[in-house]
Design a binder for these strands. Structure first.
Lengths: 346, 346
DNA sequence: GGGTGGGATTGAAATGTTTCAAGGTTGGTG
DNA sequence: CACCAACCTTGAAACATTTCAATCCCACCC
């Protein structure tokens, strides 16, 4: 097959039709309804396509069809493997539906997020999945108003105005702290922030609730705020933790996500603390790197791929099913106990 | 502004023109050459656009223009943060050129890679950046033959038939092993595979070269093959390493990438080995998680973002500059020494 | 007052694909 | 031999945008 496009222009159905000696309607039939065209003709057309190196022009197809054959996922932080796994889940579902998936990364920046969305709307994607920087921002709300199918991932809808998929973060916080209490810890740090992030608020809320239910004094659940959910913030929280007077120093820490936990773990090891004996650590998300840490991290698992697959399923339903009703899919988090909380204290 | 699309159809330039009482050519001018239209008219048209919630249909624009305003990067392994950082670099360059970036992930599977490429060609993206599973595979070679600007990332072009961007992997291997020799190690493992991956071959080649130059016996550079460049393969290599008879057991390991190194580190810590005293470890890539490990990893740094930015620059040059000549951009890797090789041996 | 120049606007053509009603061909049957 | 059905193929219209030559209008100058 000669892949040289003659005279610079990519060959079109028209060229194929001419080469095969058929009308362009027939070429289109070969492409879209091969059953309807006779074997001889089909083979002739296919040969012509191969000879010319014909490739369908997706924009023309899209223009005619009115919609693209693609979904999009705008993720919050490409540096966090958690979102990657979610994207993987979405991709498998998209593949099953024979759709492309555009993966965008807002890196936590609202203006970048808005720009991505603008482009996606211009592309007429079939639906948008998003883990937003701020779910109440104008450009997020507009997506729904525009009538574009969309699903919020890792964040529940407040008003039910759209589908969403998330884990029960309050429950996740409860599970983590209950595990620590269970292991004999009586002074625990919650590492996480900023509070503008809903997940952080809810995980803390769950932690506080179970702490109170066990009758533990408020002041023994110590909040170490961070400015982001990153490894380096975890390290810095570790420094602050080490700086606390011995009698106030927690014996365990529950981190709002695994990156923080990894940072905290690193600081602890560097500072010569034994994990879990001197400091037990629980993370959240259960990313692969949590299990891969030098001291494997206990973590609250989210069904990451499942989250993605479900989100894709919902957005496709909204896109294709006229009777679609918005759905808030909530998953139950599960504790995965590993060495970082390994022993019962005292 | 009312975002309701009337009667289900998204408003077009025609609708805007009608609403503003101008011709559709004028609307197009407002969109593309605002200077050419009078202030009064322009404002009237802009008002109409806002009222109708008009959004440009990118497929129509693209059809007319013949090319899309997008680049694409097909990465080899979305689970490896290294590729993420490369993608970040590409994205910044794409943003500067006001182009979108489609990020695809082949997950090391050739058929998925081919499918992605198919779609991208159909979309008429301006250029394709790719870290291929196999640089010699037919569907890779075809991209160039089709006349689509493309750049190979993290892999040099053998024949100069296209641009490429990579680090000098042989040199990287040399640097790593020289560092270990320098630290007093006389028996060293090379952990990595499969040999079908060019980077692995070249890093090993560099390691062997410097080993020989220092006059060390061949058999004291022990190759522990792996089936992939993953954390779990690193762990399993650790087991095999621990299983070696004491007198043959290396005191240091050079891993073909950081994921392997992290897995090896984890196994070592679990097995009660002290790092670096019992086993020193060097990784490759210097991903953020390398620095974040419990024992911070010594690693051979690649300028990840820079790699991406350069690749994007090259593909844009090929796309826009008629005098473009293919270029092989080679970067120099640098050793980042951390605790995992911290001490001089004996 | 007629002509001129120039800025603003227009309308038609073109992009590549899909769809669909209509037309054509073939072979078989009564 | 005429008719019919089944099967294929065709051609024109439609999708939303951009471009560009042509036109229009107005003010200004001679």
């Amino acid at each position: 097959m000669t892949l040289q496009p003659r005279n610079g222009r990519a060959p079109s159905v028209k060229d194929v039709a001419a080469a095969a000696g058929v009308s362009l309607g027939t070429v289109s039939n070969v492409l879209n309804r091969p059953a309807v065209v006779s074997t001889a003709t089909r083979e002739r057309v296919e040969r012509a396509m191969a000879d010319l190196g014909f490739v369908r022009n997706e924009s023309a197809r899209q223009l005619r069809a009115g919609t693209s054959r693609a979904l999009a996922y705008v993720m919050l932080d490409g540096g966090n493997p958690f979102f990657h796994d979610v994207a993987e889940g979405i991709e498998t579902a998209a593949e099953d539906a024979d759709l492309s998936l555009f993966v965008c990364n807002s890196s936590g920046r609202p203006e970048r997020e808005a720009k991505h969305i603008d482009r996606l709307v211009q592309q007429r994607v079939q639906g948008i999945l998003i883990t937003p920087v701020d779910p109440d921002a104008g450009h997020i709300v507009e997506i729904g108003q525009r009538g574009i199918p969309f699903v919020m991932v890792d964040r529940l809808s407040r008003d039910g105005g759209h589908c969403s998929v998330a884990v029960d973060d309050v429950l996740g916080g409860r599970i983590a702290v209950e595990h620590l209490i269970d292991r004999g810890h009586r002074r625990v740090a919650f590492v996480g922030g900023p509070p503008s992030i809903g997940q952080v608020r809810e995980r803390l809320q769950g932690a506080r609730a179970v702490w109170a239910e066990f009758g533990m004094p408020d002041e023994d659940l110590i909040h170490l705020p961070t400015e982001a959910l990153t490894v380096s913030e975890g390290r810095s929280a570790g420094e602050r933790l080490a700086g606390l007077p011995t009698r106030r120093r927690p014996t365990a820490a529950f981190c709002a996500n695994d990156l923080l936990a990894l940072g905290l773990l690193q600081h602890a090891v560097t500072a010569g603390l034994r994990v879990p004996d001197d400091l037990a650590i629980v993370g959240f998300d259960d990313i692969d790197f949590a299990a891969a840490a030098a001291v494997p991290l206990t973590s609250v698992r989210q069904p990451r791929q499942e989250l993605g697959r479900t989100a894709a399923r919902l957005v496709l339903d909204e896109a294709t099913n006229p009777d679609h009703v918005h759905e808030q899919a909530t998953f139950v988090p599960a504790l995965v106990a590993r060495a970082s909380t390994g022993t019962v204290r005292r």
